[in-house]
Amino acid sequence: MSSALKWMPLVATLALAGCARDGYFDDRRADYVDAEESAPLVLPEGRDTRRYRDAMPVPEATGAFVSQGEEFRVPPPRALGAGSGVEPGAVARREVGDRRWLVVGAEPSAVWSELERFVEERELEVVRRDASAGELVTSQARLSVRPGLQRGASELRCEQDGAPLEGCLRALARRFEARGATASASSLGVQRPEDRVRPRLTREGGEWRLAVPFDLERTWAELSYQLESDFAVAGRRELVARDAQAHAFVVDYLTLSERSAGLLGALTSLGGEAPQRIRLVLEAAGPEQSVLRALPADERELSAEDRRELLERVAGLLG
């Protein structure tokens, strides 16, 4: 080998070191300390908001902050893609038994405005109109709008004598799908997403529970939909069964303690991970309150920490 070639690795190393301020690697901590904040980007007023979305969205943390002695644990954010929330402008159906309604990806104020236009264009006779309650009664049906369980969504019902009108729901679904739910805001008084009460973890008698600020029927329908979508990963989390009469679900879930044991086993070349069968039971706790409990459904014990972690994930699906 040429003597010149022998010196090339050393020359390259020295060149790299010369590019760094401290040693072989550039320490950029000072860059963040000395950084200055610039003015925020301002987009044109007349832009089509449907064409813009976050390039790198950060999921929000849902659930309550849990204090465990002197330690402080921040609840994990909902995983991107977890569950199947309704996209802005989209329409989905929900049903429990013979009850059916629509979930629209728009704030109730926008849905109310579009609903008023729907009634006007069809020349329906309005018997009663209550914008604050989101209720519009015609001689043919009772139309109602209320905030959905998902952030930025609304529930839209069309009923007659308490029974859903399928033709009306289909017509409304077609309309909102075509319009993209872009109606302007109206006088409908609703809670803004940041003001709404979210599901929160509570502890009674040493048992973690999830308090949901929605009635039993709506919570069951949304939770059934979300679990079917999110609990579909073999060996990690799977929806095994659901009982509408008992308002209960059976899931196979790889608990936090099992994941921790599996990591230790992988490091020491021991054993593997095994999901645990768990029963999720939903109970009414008042007119607009429900409680979700996690109970073991096999011979294994379900620790308090594992219950808390599972319920925290479910809270993210309802958030």
Rank of each mutant, 00 (worst) to 15 (best):
V291E: 09
A64G: 13
L124W: 13
F72Y: 13
P76W: 01
L227S: 06
S260E: 15
A64Q: 10
L41N: 05
S187H: 08
R279Q: 15
L295S: 03
P59M: 06
A244M: 04
V127A: 03
R128K: 13
D22A: 06
D27H: 09
A141D: 00
L201E: 11
L280F: 06
V33C: 07
E135I: 15
S132T: 13
E36T: 13
V104E: 08
D48A: 11
A294F: 11
A211K: 03
V250D: 08
G23I: 02
W101H: 09
Q191A: 14
D252L: 14
S269V: 12
S229E: 14
R293W: 05
E309Q: 10
R47V: 14
A304N: 09
P76I: 02
R29T: 12
P296D: 04
V145N: 00
E273R: 08
E177F: 00
P59N: 10
T202W: 01
G148Q: 07
V74G: 02
G262L: 08
G46A: 13
R218F: 05
E107L: 15
L115F: 05
E125F: 04
E283C: 00
R209G: 04
A30N: 10
R146V: 07
V96D: 11
Q289H: 14
L201V: 01
A315E: 13
E301F: 07
A244H: 03
D22M: 01
G152P: 05
E155F: 08
T255N: 08
R198Q: 15
Q160T: 08
R53H: 09
A61M: 11
A294W: 04
P76L: 13
A173C: 06
S269Q: 10
P199N: 07
E273A: 06
F25E: 12
G235S: 07
A92C: 01
Q68H: 08
W220R: 09
E107H: 14
V240R: 08
R99S: 15
L282F: 07
D161P: 04
P275N: 07
E155M: 12
P147Q: 06
R93S: 12
L156E: 03
E123Y: 05
E301S: 13
R93V: 04
R157N: 10
Y52N: 01
E60I: 03
R142V: 04
Q140L: 15
E71P: 01
G152Y: 11
P213S: 06
L216T: 05
V251G: 08
L149K: 01
V212I: 15
V96G: 01
T219I: 09
E166G: 05
P147G: 10
T62E: 12
V233C: 03
E116Y: 00
G134R: 02
S224D: 14
M56V: 14
A92R: 12
E116W: 02
A181F: 03
E301D: 14
A106M: 05
G205N: 13
S269D: 11
A92E: 13
E204L: 06
G162Q: 09
R78M: 10
E238M: 12
A173K: 07
T255D: 08
L263F: 11
V58Y: 10
S67T: 13
L156P: 07
V314C: 10
E273F: 05
R146C: 03
Q140H: 02
E217C: 02
E114F: 02
